[in-house]
Amino acid sequence: MNALAINTLAWIPFVQPLPGVIAWWWLWILPMLAGVSVTWKAIRLTSLQSYWRDVAVMFGQLLIGMIALAAGLMLLVRVVLPLLPVE
């Protein structure tokens, strides 16, 4: 049994940090975007008739926005900044 499996078995939920999160920390953006979309649309929509469709659209928009932001920052750090002259 590896260390992660042992740590998970010994894990005390809500008291101890969840083991094995660090390797895939960026995946937690998905439940966060879902939570933000569910709450924000419940506050803002006048009628809840097309609620889940609107939540899905907002989730997609936020996800695309975050991916675009990450790609832009990656371009800046890996392409643009190395081109700058070193004094």
């Binding site: 939920p13 809500f14 008291v15 101890q16 940090p17 969840l18 999160v21 937690w28 439940p31 966060m32 939570g35 933000v36 569910v38 709450t39 419940a42 506050i43 809840l48 609620y51």
Partner: peptide, 25 residues
Amino acid sequence: FLRGKLIMLGVVGMFLMGVLVGGVD
């Protein structure tokens, strides 16, 4: 009622998920 339940789901769900991942700390 429906709006209240959806807000409860979103806010309490996000809070509990945060504590589940990061612990009470």
